[in-house]
Amino acid sequence: HSAEQTEIAEVPAWDSLNPGTLQLVSKLKNPSGSCSVDVSATWWEIAGFKEPCVITACEYVVSLWKPLDAWQWEKIYSWHFTEVPVLQIVVVPDVCSLVCVALGNLEIREIRALFCSPDGKSEKQVLLSSGNIKAVLGLAKRRLVSSSGTLCDQQVEIMTFAEDGGSKEKQLLMPPEETILTFAEVQGMQEALLGTTIMNNIVIWNLKTGQLLKKMHIDDSYQASVCHKAYSEMGLLFVVLSHPRAKENELLGSPVFQLTVINPKTALSTGVMLYRLPHGQAGRFLEGDVKDHFAAAVLTSGTIAVWDLLLGHCTALLPPVSGQSWSFVKWSGTDSHLLAGQKDGNIFVYRY
């Protein structure tokens, strides 16, 4: 099979899925002794040039890797943390040479910005917010949204970075009366923001005015859905959801992602498509990432599965490598690569 082959006419059985649709192009080995937790890609200015860099996060170290020739990588900066471990990397689109991280144990306790001194010789970090933080997301136009506090004093805050990543403006959004689990941008609508809540509602804000526009209840068959992507078309809102708490269905296989359509005017919604695992493949959604019309998920089986959301089915499976289960997966925002990581610090870069 060629690496370019991505079209499959019929729903394939798992043993006929083409592993060649994912071609390994590069590998990074993070030698840090602590457990690897996340990976991402971002633009960083190095010696006057913006380079597509990879960011890796272990529990107590976040590292920036710059590309060398022939798909080699060189670690150029490391930020160290001593008290609170890193939970996730938060890339802020449209900001160069700055990345945010969420730190905490089970829940986020701090959000920090990581950058370098103007001469590029030393790593810097600054605390952006602290407290009982529930969700955080980087948004277009150099913005970062986070929610913190409990039900009665929940605060939803937008922080806007200056072009150089420096001084910040803050704005509050109207909080919904239920805990927010995740945020999602609406593709092509920079002033719209979605949130998913613990009560299985999707809320929508106007970022310009801070108004909470609507609370929309979605299908109760899956609890605590997470929204990975949203777009508006012909007056309807389409959302790609995952169901981390869905029970495995032996007959049908576990639905890993779901496309749902919502009419924001009436708050009525209906399922459009379920993205299931191929027959014979077991596992539930652990974590995943959606970019354009491609969705990738790490399954409880330790395998990574990729779906083409337009074709409607799984197009590639990536079983554990060297007997090691996959722990996290991200689409690179700087190109069309898939970044797959294992707990021991191995990061693999695949061309899809």
């Binding site: 106007n206 526009l213 007056g235 309807l236 009419n263 924001p264 005017k265 009436t266 919604s269 459009v272």
Partner: peptide
């Protein structure tokens, strides 16, 4: 899915909801 099940659709839903919602 059937569009009719979702009720009346508006292409300007974002602007309309913004004008209706409390600020």
């Amino acid at each position: 899915c059937n569009k009719a099940d979702l009720g009346p659709i508006s292409l300007n839903w974002f602007e309309e909801l913004s004008s209706e919602a409390p600020s």
